[in-house]
Every structure is written in C-alpha cells, then in structure tokens.
Design a binder for these strands. Structure first.
Length: 875
RNA sequence: GCGGCUGUAGCUCAGAGGGAGAGCACCACCUUGACACGGUGGGGGCCACAGGUUCGAUUCCUGUCAGCCGCACCA
C-alpha cells in the first residue's frame, strides 16, 4: 500500500533543492509564466487555494516538461484590514493595549514582527500541496520593490489626472473604521420598514409626506425633493417645511431623480448619508451636514439623540415621530443593505475626504483592448461578465484609514494648503516651498498593490531580465469570484503602465463547496482543511480530486468519498508499478523495444498509449483538466492495469525469453509514459515511482512530455484486441449467468466466421485459455455447436461452452432471447436509418457507411442467435 | 430590473449534432502469485418540460418551470 506521508515531503525537498523549480530568464527555450494569486499572509490555506494551486501547477509542470522555460512565481499579499485586525486583537489580548496606545510606528513594527513569525505558514502550506513555485522569486506586496511600484503608479496616475482626492460619499465600515470600495460591500436583502412621515409646511398650509427607510438620518435633511413634472407638488416647490423633532426648516426642491410613483413622490434629501441624495446635493448646491459619525453614533446635530448608536436612534426617532403625530404609516420593505464583506457590519454611506482612481479612461482602454481580442477568457463566457462590469464601473476609492499598508505618498502643506504627491518624502511644498508638510495618514487599498502583481513581482518599474523574459505572463488562473477585485485591476494597470495585457489568458475555475452545496465558511463551520486531507490521503489524492472530472468554470462539491477514490487510483498505480518493477530482472539491462517483435497486445497497448498522449495533451492545452484526468484514469486503470498487465503475465510467467524481454520493455515503456502524463496532476507518486524505473534522467519533473508517435500506432491491433476482449467478456458473462464457478475449468469452442478471425483467435489462444479458465480451446471456421452448449455471438463468430450436466435449458433460452431482443432493436434502429432516403442522401458518407456496417454485423449476429435458439427449441 | 450558471442512473458529476457515461452506492460471485484502497459479472436513465432548426437533437435555438450566482442608488 502506498503511503504518501513518507514520500511527499522528501520528494518536494528533493525538487526544491535540485533547482527544478527555478526558471532561467536567460534560457533559450520559449517562456511560459504564471504568477500565483497571492494569498493573504495572515491566512491559512483553504480548499480554494488548493484548487487554484493545483490547476496552476498542472499547467506549469506540463509546460516545463513540454520544453518551456516555465516560471511559477509565488508570493503573498499584506491584506491590510485582515492583518491589522488580527494583530490588534492579539495586542488587546496580550497587553490590553489598542493600536493607539502603541502609536503608529510601533504598531506597524509589531505587524512586521507578526508577519516575520507567521508569514511563511501559508507558503509552507503551498509547498505541501506540491506547487512547483520558484521560491527564489517569492514576493510580498509590501516588499521594497513592490512598494516602489505602488508609489510609482500612484504618482504617475496622479500626474495623469487619474487619481484625485475628493470629499464624497463612500462606503464606510464603522467597525473596521475605514472606507471600503464598492466591491468590498456585499448587498444583502434585509427586511426593513418604509416609514411615511409628515413634514408640515412652515406656514401651516398643510404638509408633505415623505417615505424613508432610515428615519434616523432626518437630522441631516436639507430639503425635500419632488419631481419637477409632478402636478401634485408643482406649486409647492420653494416652500419651506418644518423638520419634525427639530427646529430646522428645509425647502421643497425639484429634481428629476425623484420617481413620482414611488412612495408619496416626495424624497427627503440627506446629502451626507445617502449617495443619491449626495448627487442631488451637488446639483442644488445644498449643505451637507452629518448627523452620524465615523463610529455610527449620532452627532450633536441630532440634538437629544446625540451619542446614540444609529440603531437605537432609529427606534427612538420612530417612537417620537409616532408620539408627535408625524408618522403616517409604516410599511414592510425588503431592501438591499450593504454589509462589510470582511466583518459583515452594516456599511454606512459616509461623507469624507478620500482618494479615488478615475475609472472611465482606464475602463475604456481595457474595453478597447478586449475588443481587439488581446485577452482570452477560459471559459469564454466570463468575458461578458467582465465587460459588463467594465461598462458600469464607478470611481475606485483607494484610501483606507488603516496603518498597515502602503502609505499614500501625498503631503499636505500647512502653509498654502496644497498637496504635494511625490515618490520620495519631499523636503518642501511643491507649491509654496514651505517646510510645513504632513503626510497623508491613510494607506492604499490592498488591491491597489495586488493590481500590479504581474509586473511588480518581476521588478517593474525597473527594466529587468525577468520582465523581458516572462512578462506578459502566459495565463492567470483564478476563481471567478475575484474577477473584479483583482483581474480587472491588473488589466487596467498592465495596460496603463506596460502597454500590454498582463496575461494572454485568464483561466477561471469555480468555487469549492461543502457536500450540501453551500459555500464553505468559517461561520458555518463547514470548511474542510486541505492540510487534513493531505495528512489523511496525500497531496496527490487532493490534487487529483480537485482536477479530475471537473468542468471548466463550474463549482464543485467536496466529498471525502471522492478523495478516497483518488487515493485508490494512486494506490492502483503504485501497485501496478510494483508489479512492473518486481518483474524486471535485477542484473540484466532492459531490452530495446522492437516493434517487429511485438505481440498483438503489445501493439494494442502501445497504440492506445499514443492515442492517450494525443488526447491528454489536447485537453491540457485547452485547460480542460477534468477531461485530461478522466482520459488518464481510464487508460491507466481499465486498459493498462486491467488488461495489459493481465495479458503480460502470460509472457512473463512463460518460457519464451525473447517474448519476456519484449513484454518487460513494453511494460516499462508504457508505465514510463503514463507516469509522465500523470505527473502534472499527481507529481509525488509519479516521481517516486519513476525514480526506481530503469529509465534515464535525473527526475520526472524535468523529463520530457510524451509525443504521440505515428510510427507506433497499429490500428488493426486495436480492433483485434477489442475482439479478443469481447470473446473473453462473453465467456465470463456465460460463467456468471450460468453459475459456473470461476475455478471450474471449461471446454471452449469457437466458430470463426472468417479466415482472419480464425487466425487471430488461434494466435491469442493462450490468452483465451487463461482468461476463460479453459482446459481446452477449439477454434475453427467449421466448428459446430455441441449438444447442450451455451452460446454467445461476437463480431468474429460464435462461442460455445458445453455444459453437459449443468446446463439449464430454460436459462440458456432466456439468455439467447434477451440477446435476440437486443440485436433486433439494434438492427431495427440501423435499418430504419438506412431506409430513410434523406439520411442516405444528406448525412456524411462515412456516417452512412458505418451505419451500413453496423446493420450488416447485427444482422449476422441476429441470424446466429436465432439459429441457435431454434436448435435449442428443437432439442 | 439586467446578466450568467445549473437541471443526465439512488448520490456526486462528466459528456457530445449520429449507438446514454464515470465514480460512489446497489446485487451476485471471487482468499487468482501488483493491488480487497482489489478482481469478475450485473441491475438501474421518456438526458426537467414544450416548441423550433436538422436527414438526425439529450447535445444547437426559443420559451416554460425549478434551483443557484453575479451586477444594479429606487427613497
């Protein structure tokens, strides 16, 4: 039994130390490169990473074997919010201090300590799944070089007018105390209420009724808007309203944004707390007071409610509105509420000074480039998702109120108030020369640095050899859930700063789900730790599970049973290899392959191997890992193990030394190639086995990828062995159906229906004897059915198994009738097709021809079965 | 609202314009000298539904139903 635990660590170390993972930028070979989506340093490997890494590593190992200089560049990102939160929590637990107690500098130093201590945990986990990364090129988003790239891009974009600072509404997470970009907000349908509230006119001439889902923001109301065409309110525009629960007065204004049909057609305008109202505020030049602060608490503006949380405030405000007679009605409302994607807190639309990337021009460039087919998505459909998003992008808020991250290279002048943006800390203000400069406190969104990953990792902005050799990268492999976060940003920055798409292809895979189809998540506690899988079944089994039988871009569910199946396959391979090895002579060299001396089964397996090589290579080139895995599984188990090895035993246990030598050579040849083909998927076992095979080369990881060899294909042999197998199966079926114990020898008679068939059957007689457990085999073109025999019909003739004392005539009749029915329906199907003039006229000739052949063969078989049946009835 | 995915054996899923597949589960048999994480044989499916294109559709197109997922500021 194969035990991966004792093998995998050793093999990985061997590879790593042998330099097999290292790519040479000065190599003459064609280049192939992948940059790994950097996992969070704080994180630990989950099955999604495992899947992602498996696919990348399959691609890289395949290309490396196929003669490319292959680079798989690993690294991690600094994960601003996640890491900072983590270290803050640790700090609080250990010393009771907050980051403010420590101060920025000390705190950041603390995070670096943490990173140095735990940061290589995840990269060691990546090693455990076998990724053949070039660790000498490992990068971290906060490395000096990558930080320089970040500053360069920031300064450049600022100078090109694509980065600006503005006082705008952004998504604010009160718990994380930072701004978030639009895509870091998850909208969830939440039941709420639509409150209809009376706002009376100041002059006592009545009232308007507004509808709101957030009554607690009313203290920051600056107007009530109606549609300019709304006849109900046209003459009210400009009138003043008394804001309930306050002494404030606000005007009725007109704006096209209001929908007349919704609610009452009146909208309260709160520019500081609602993105739409903010736009209205800008259009009408309104004040933008805030009644909720950064901690999601009510400000002094809320008067008596100041200091309350927004939730408490709502309850109290609603109550007081009811008391005061302002509440008209309360309707149930299901509405989408933004939640922080990291901590699930309800996001507050918050007016503040932030930095933004102007997306319009960047998106346009990306769309143009996509239009020119400069990037290919696999599967294709993801391109639509991508372009649709690009069509509607909004500016990207990139500043984060954190300490851990790339600090924004912008300085404010206390003398003139202007901003200086520079690569290096400026001595003086660019505008007035003053030395009173303060650097912006904020850091950049982590994705800002991840967005530069394909080229920043290769040394950009310096013009390095790596960039020359390996950029643009060949493929990007990622799950579809981060196309917008990551892929899009890399595309923008790649085009803007390198004038190239950062990768030729984007290969998308799905998400891995729990067995019940739900997402794996910490809160549900239904996550499976890949390391546990590796510990129990080995990394190869995990990899094969994740790659085999999957479909591009689709999700998959995790099943331990599937891992078990993979483990069984690996074990099968291991045992087959043991068989091959134990049948090799210890001291003689292996014979050369001599196709002239091949037996029919040798020709067959060698041909099937060529076909498999062709098939698997094609699937891998198309990134169709599931199909590649399936083809290899079937060939290895069903054809090589179940049939060829069994055939080979005859020769190996026989007396013919020449045949034995050939068989050994074929076994080794096929196994060698199977190992090569399987290596990208299950690198550990294949390397381990390969090391003990009598083949030349330092390691499988550096061995060459098999090429299909047309001179070694014997199509006739494939057809012949197919027939031999059919005979053997038929006899086994007879044994099982007629309850003849496998241990009981039988007498086998075969009537060949052609000379060729006769010759073939004679040549494979030893196989028939062994596989059918026949004490005697009689083959001839004029064999006839003996009395009391069980019959089966195959393509090349008829099989008779005399069962003198055992035969149950009823059972045999039943068997033959079943077979007759089956054949009849086949004949019917074929003749029906052929009698259709349209089919014969319009279908491709080869299809018609093969249909004719089928019809003829089934006719013949049917006739045989009917004849036998008649004879049986006559008895 | 817009866009996308999925619907195939009891379960999980591949597949492809010309005879329905795999793994697991199930039934029967097998202590065969690589492997019981194994071997042999077997049962099981109107390929969601309705139209259309085609000589031919489970596969392509349209619609319906069901499940899921993105994107979207409707108070």
């Amino acid at each position: 039994m194969y035990e991966p635990q004792s093998v995998e660590k050793r093999i990985y170390q061997f590879w790593e130390e042998s330099g097999a993972f290292q790519a040479d930028s000065s190599s003459e070979k064609p280049k192939f490169s992948i940059v790994m989506p950097p996992p969070n340093v704080t994180g630990s490997l989950h099955l999604g990473h495992a899947w992602n890494n498996t696919l990348q590593d399959i691609i890289i190992r395949y290309r490396r074997m196929a003669g490319y200089e292959a680079l798989f560049l690993p690294g991690t990102d600094h994960a601003g919010i996640a890491t900072q939160t983590r270290v803050e929590k640790m700090l609080r637990e250990e010393t009771g201090q907050s980051r403010y107690d420590l101060g920025r500098e000390k705190f950041v130093e603390r995070v670096w300590d943490w990173k140095r201590e735990y940061g290589n945990r995840i990269t060691n986990q990546v090693r455990a799944i076998g990724s053949s990364c070039d660790w000498s090129r490992e990068r971290f988003t906060m490395d000096e070089g990558l930080s320089k790239a970040v500053r360069t891009v920031f300064v450049e974009l600022y100078n090109r007018g694509l980065i600006y600072r503005g006082n705008r509404i952004i998504n604010w997470c009160p718990r994380c105390s930072t701004a978030l970009s639009d895509i870091e907000v998850e909208h969830m349908e939440v039941p709420g209420k639509l409150y209809h509230v009376r706002y009376p006119y100041v002059d006592g001439s009545g009232e308007v009724v507004i509808a709101t889902s957030r009554p607690e923001t009313m203290f920051a109301d600056v107007a009530v808007a109606v549609h300019p065409d709304d006849t109900r309110y046209q003459n009210k525009i400009g009138k003043m309203l008394q804001l309930p629960l306050t002494d404030k007065q606000i005007p009725v204004i007109a704006d096209n944004y209001v929908e007349q049909e919704f609610g009452t057609g009146c909208v309260k305008i709160t520019p500081a707390h609602d993105p739409n109202d903010f736009e209205v505020g800008l259009r009408h030049n309104l004040e933008m007071p805030q009644c909720i602060d950064a901690d999601a608490k009510m400000t002094a503006l809320a008067g008596a409610y100041a200091g309350l949380s927004r939730e408490e405030a709502r309850i109290r405000v609603v109550e007081d509105l009811r008391q005061g007679g302002y509440m008209v009605k309360e309707e149930e409302l299901l509405h989408a509420v933004g939640h922080c994607s990291r901590c699930d807190t309800v996001v507050e639309p918050f007016l503040s000074d932030q930095w933004f990337v102007k997306m319009g021009p960047l998106a346009e460039k990306a769309l143009a480039s996509l239009g020119r087919k400069e990037l290919e998505f696999v599967p294709e459909r993801f391109e639509r998702v991508f372009t649709h998003w690009l069509d509607n992008v909004r500016d990207w808020c990139i500043s984060r109120q954190l300490w851990w991250g790339h600090r924004i290279p912008a300085w404010y002048c206390d003398s003139c108030g202007e901003i200086t943006v520079a690569m290096d800390t400026p001595e003086t203000c660019q505008h007035c020369g003053s030395k009173d400069l303060r650097q912006d406190d904020d850091v950049l969104d982590t994705w800002f640095s991840s967005g530069l990953w394909p080229f920043s990792t290769m040394g950009w902005p310096n013009d390095t050899e790596d960039l020359q050799a390996f950029y643009p990268t060949s493929v990007l492999v990622t799950a579809y859930d981060i196309v917008f976060f990551w892929v899009a940003r890399m595309v923008f920055t790649g085009l803007e700063f390198t004038d190239k798409m950062p990768f030729e292809k984007v290969v998308m895979h799905g998400l891995i789900r729990a067995a019940d189809g739900r997402k794996m998540s910490k809160s549900l506690g239904n996550g499976v730790d890949p390391l546990e899988v590796i510990e129990k079944y080995g990394a190869d089994a995990l990899r094969f599970t994740l790659a085999n039988g999957t479909s591009p871009g689709n999700d998959q569910r995790f099943y331990w049973e599937k891992v078990e199946g993979s483990r069984n396959f690996i074990n099968k391979l291991w045992n087959a290899s043991r068989f091959v090895l134990m049948n090799l002579p210890a001291d003689e060299p292996l014979q050369d392959l001599d196709p002239g001396a091949f037996s029919v089964v040798d020709k067959w397996i060698v041909t099937r191997l060529q076909e498999t090589v062709d098939e698997v290579s094609g699937h891998l080139l198309r990134y169709d890992f599931g199909e590649a895995g399936r083809a290899l599984y079937d060939f290895t188990w069903d054809e090589f193990c179940d049939w060829y090895i069994e055939f080979a035993k005859l020769s190996l246990y026989g007396e013919d030394e020449a045949a034995k030598g050939q068989t050994r050579a074929v076994l080794v040849y096929v196994l060698d190639n199977v190992l090569r083909l399987l290596h990208p998927m299950i690198p550990f076992v294949t390397e381990e086995i390969w090391q003990s095979l009598p083949v030349s080369g330092p390691s499988l990881i550096l061995a060459s990828w098999p090429q299909p060899d047309q001179t070694w294909t014997f199509p006739a042999a494939v057809e012949e062995v197919r027939q031999v197998i059919e005979v053997i199966r038929s006899v086994r079926n007879i044994r099982a159906e007629m309850n003849v114990a496998p241990s009981k020898p039988i007498h086998l008679l075969i009537r060949a229906n052609s000379v060729q068939s006769d010759a073939l059957l004679h040549s494979v007689e030893p196989y028939l004897k062994r596989f059918c457990n026949a004490e005697a085999v009689d083959i001839g073109t004029n064999q006839t059915a003996p009395d009391k025999a069980v019959t089966a019909v195959f393509g090349g003739g008829e099989i008779y198994v005399p069962l003198t004392d055992l035969v149950d005539l009823g059972a045999e009749q039943e068997r033959l009738q079943k077979e007759r029915d089956r054949l009849q329906s086949e004949v019917l199907r074929a003749t029906k097709k052929l009698s259709n003039q349209q089919f014969v006229a319009k279908a491709p000739p080869e299809v018609v021809e093969s249909e004719k052949q089928k019809a003829a063969e089934y006719q013949q078989r049917l006739a045989s079965v009917e004849e036998r049946l008649a004879a049986l009835m006559a008895d």
